[in-house]
Design a protein around this nucleic acid. Structure first.
Length: 319
DNA sequence: CATCAGGGCCCTG
DNA sequence: CAGGGCCCTGAT
């Protein structure tokens, strides 16, 4: 599908804002709907029944931020539709967050001061709930390479390849597509038992039983309860969604074993510290900002790794 | 060649 | 609340 019309829009994130820290997460696995180079992000969005290409460019600085959003479409867009896309982008990347007390807190923390120096203004990278759920499901009980393969297979079978601005990126399928697909067809894409979760999740979205914007208004405990009701969502997935998708910056009550090892190194300079102790420590240090602070530390480590391998970390990343 | 665990979760007892 | 089963894949 060729998206040959483009529409420009300016977004003004709250200051400070870190463009590359927000729009590229080296700890995430690469997916066919995103491309990044310093200062520019390309991605896609399915909004209602529209497939759109998005380009975000850094046209400001950390302390005087400005982002140019270009929307690519196959047909003309109204001013209202453009504004809706702008709002969704701002919400997905938490562009209007007030991080002033977070910055104060990190600035007083010996360990975090240099990290803050590198990433001041970084936000979390969320996305539509349905698409995030699909990512979570392919992450479950799988190594990185397999997750990449499963998502790629799904994109090739059910996604739409969108051509815009010299890029070719996949747009997600509508939930109805997987709802209607036979489970066997999904299993043929090597997703295994996850086929059942994908179908049931897609069914819930197709019938309108899940609503991103309604969920966004809920307090933490109710949101968590609502998410756990979705089939295939357990402790690991709910943790990911609470933080990355719903920007609950204190959502740190679960650690997977490999992350436990990473935080053991970063916080205690030890190979393995009990999970409980890690959770107590992040609460003590960062309180209501504990997950966002941990995210800064985590992404900082993965950025360092892109410049030079971190030997102890390489062993923990199972490809 | 076989066995096993991996960035979980559901279901059963 | 504990533990078995689940798909596939690469490591051993």
């Amino acid at each position: 599908m060729i998206l040959d019309r483009s529409y420009g829009l300016e977004l003004q994130p709250s200051a400070p804002f870190h463009f590359d820290g927000t729009f590229h997460k080296p700890s995430h696995f690469p997916s066919g709907d995103i491309a990044w180079q310093p200062g520019t992000l390309w991605t896609t969005r399915r909004i209602a029944n529209d497939l759109l290409g998005l380009k975000l460019e850094n046209t400001g600085t950390v302390d005087s931020p400005c982002v140019r959003l270009t929307i690519f479409a196959s047909h003309s867009l109204s001013a209202g539709e453009m504004a809706a896309v702008g709002d969704e982008v701002a919400s997905d990347y938490d562009l209007y967050a007030d991080l002033s007390s977070f910055d104060d807190l990190l600035g007083r923390d010996e360990l975090m001061r240099p990290v803050l120096g590198r990433w001041r203004g970084m936000r979390t990278m969320g996305g539509p709930l349905y698409e995030s759920l699909v990512i979570c499901v392919v992450l479950q009980n799988a190594t990185v390479r397999r997750s990449v393969q499963m998502l790629d297979n799904l994109f090739r079978a059910y996604g739409d390849l969108l051509h815009f601005d010299g890029q070719a990126l996949y747009g997600f399928w509508p939930p109805q597509a997987l709802d209607a697909a036979p489970e066997e067809a999904l299993r043929a894409l090597k997703v295994g038992y996850r086929a059942k979760s994908l179908k049931r999740i897609s069914g819930q979205f197709a019938r309108g039983e899940c609503d991103d914007s309604a969920l966004r208004c809920l307090p933490n405990d109710e949101l968590k309860r609502a998410l756990l009701k979705i089939y295939g969502v357990g402790p690991a997935t709910v943790w990911y969604l609470m933080f990355e998708v719903f920007h609950r910056n204190d959502a740190f009550d679960h650690i997977s074993p490999w992350e436990q090892k990473i935080y053991s190194r970063l916080l205690f300079d030890q190979e393995l510290v009990p999970a409980e102790q890690v959770l107590t420590e992040v609460e003590r240090r960062w309180g209501r900002w504990k997950m966002l602070a941990a995210h800064y530390l985590f992404e900082d480590l993965f950025w360092r790794r892109t410049h030079a391998p971190v030997p102890w970390l390489e062993e923990l990343i199972r490809l």
